[in-house]
Nucleic acid binder design. Structure first.
Length: 187
DNA sequence: TCATTGATTTGCT
DNA sequence: GCAAATCAATGAT
């Protein structure tokens, strides 16, 4: 992938859809960041959706200094810190977002990209990138391919709304974080 | 100002 | 499988 592809990100309309749809559609797409002239690229293999009325969502109780990015336009990056690590989300519709949980390394990646904390470390994402736009900012979402089969299951690490099946992953992909996919997939 | 909690990771039992 | 690390955001006092 060359530098010119970095300047052809997915359109804003891609993110202006229902969040579970976007979470699924993001599988197979790419994320990229230019660092010191070099490109770091990964293929998205695992995501989670956080929606309106969802007690597990940071936006559940309305805007706060931490989560205000979640109320920005579609394609806004929301980065927060928890337990000494950072996690990155992409805003879909107002107050909803998709958590990036894992990517498959494609170019210029050092270290693991398995799990939201490690993914952020690999792309050097911190609160400094919070609120940026994934079409024009330092960290972008670029067109990739599609995935053959999507596995669906409960989200990881939350204490509320655990029954909801809002975790999406490419079935069988080795870069998907633990706990590993559910035996069967639902397309 | 104080106490609680956590969209994680790591290491040990 | 489970708990500790370790700290900022949040909500209560």
């Amino acid at each position: 992938m060359g530098p010119e592809e970095f300047d052809r990100p997915l359109p804003r309309s891609f993110f202006d859809r229902s969040t579970p749809i976007v979470a699924r559609a993001l599988l197979g797409q790419r994320v990229a960041r230019r660092v010191a002239g070099e490109l770091r690229v990964g293929r998205i293999v695992e995501t989670e959706a956080y929606v309106t009325g969802d007690p597990a969502s940071h936006a559940y109780r309305g805007p706060t200094p931490r989560n205000r990015s979640m109320f920005g336009p579609p394609g806004t990056l929301y980065v927060y810190r928890i337990h000494q690590v950072h996690c990155a989300n992409i805003v879909t519709r107002r107050g909803e977002a998709v958590l990036l949980r894992a990517v498959e390394p494609e170019q210029g990646i050092e270290g693991s990209t398995q799990g939201p904390g490690r993914l952020c470390r690999a792309f050097a994402l911190t609160r400094a990138e919070d609120g940026s736009d994934v079409r024009t900012g330092a960290f972008r979402v670029l067109p990739g391919g599609t995935v053959r089969t999507v596995a669906v299951g409960p989200r990881v690490g939350i204490s509320r709304a655990r029954a909801r099946r809002l975790r999406f992953a490419e079935a069988g992909n080795r870069w998907v974080s633990l706990p590993r996919p559910w035996p069967r997939s639902a397309d």
